[in-house]
């Protein structure tokens, strides 16, 4: 029973991390129609920026996390404005641009920090005890921040002018522009929002898991899996799917071990596509 509860806590914590990643990924796809292959790269970059701030500059960890968010969001903004914007209607071209950026980013990190994992530790350690159940404090802190960020994203999207405009652009770009919504301002904003979230996740999670140039690939794969499961472009679907993926992963690693859980999840998602090609909460999206 304790084991069951403990895995549940880990699962929910993982789910919150995946949700931040998947929400960003699906936001970019829903609004711009771009499949962002550099999403894992921004996660990794967030981790390295936070690490460099703490280790090289001696900055307190919370400030380092903010710096990571700022850097990844700024880079996302510039990348969208200068490169993606030119080809935003060509799905394959924008996909290749993000792939190219990812390769450049990971090589740059390799050059600066080397191939080995960094000694990057979460500043808070210890565990809370609820009766027989231990909950690692670091996981709880990350969970809290992730949930806050998800709430914040929700407020931005559903309670502000910008958020409403972004959702309108996702629904019908031409009509949204004819209503005076400016893609030149809003597309980079959406991209920056999403990459900033990936950077935040990286800064929070890499000190707990690990930080090396190799961390980006699995993150990208998990983001793909989550958004396919939830339905490409669906925000609610991405959040729901993220928690499903997190919880399945946590329980299968406790009860089966190894990568069986991941394998089951992958195959389940493939089977889902047979019966519901648009994912759990997806709808027929743009002609992508």
């Amino acid at each position: 029973m304790e084991q069951f509860l403990q895995a549940g806590i880990i699962g929910i914590s993982l789910g919150a991390q995946y949700a931040l990643l998947a929400l960003g990924f699906t936001l970019i796809f829903g609004i711009l129609g771009v499949v962002n292959f550099s999403h894992g790269g921004f996660y990794m970059l967030g981790g390295y920026v936070a690490y460099a701030c703490v280790d090289r500059l001696g900055v307190p960890y919370p400030v380092a996390v903010l710096a990571a968010v700022g850097t990844t969001a700024a880079l996302g903004w510039v990348f969208e404005l200068l490169l993606i914007e030119r080809l935003v209607d060509d799905h394959l071209a924008t996909l290749m641009l993000t792939l190219g950026l990812y390769l450049v980013m990971s090589t740059a990190m390799l050059e600066v920090f080397g191939p080995l994992a960094m000694d990057f530790r979460f500043p808070i350690t210890g565990a809370l005890r609820f009766g027989p159940v231990y909950a690692p404090l670091e996981n709880l802190v990350v969970l809290g921040i992730c949930l806050t960020a998800i709430m914040g994203l929700w407020l931005v999207l559903f309670r502000t002018d910008i958020g409403r405009a972004l959702r309108a652009l996702a629904d019908d770009r031409a009509v949204a522009m004819a209503q005076g919504l400016r893609p030149k301002l809003l597309f980079p904003a959406a991209f920056a929002l999403a990459t900033g979230l990936a950077g935040l996740t990286g800064a929070l999670v890499t000190p707990i898991l690990s930080l090396s140039p190799g961390v980006a690939d699995p993150v990208l794969a998990t983001s793909f899996l989550t958004v396919i499961l939830g339905g490409l472009g669906s925000l609610g679907g991405a959040a729901l799917a993220a928690f499903i993926v997190g919880i399945v992963e946590a329980y299968s690693s406790v009860y089966f071990g190894g990568s069986i859980g991941a394998l089951i999840l992958f195959v389940l998602v493939l089977l889902l596509l047979v019966f519901r090609p648009t994912g759990l909460l997806g709808r027929e999206v743009r002609g992508a």
Partner: peptide, 10 residues
């Protein structure tokens, strides 16, 4: 409501 307000952005 959001549809209507999207016509009054900014």
């Amino acid at each position: 409501t959001d549809n209507v307000l999207s016509g009054a952005f900014g």
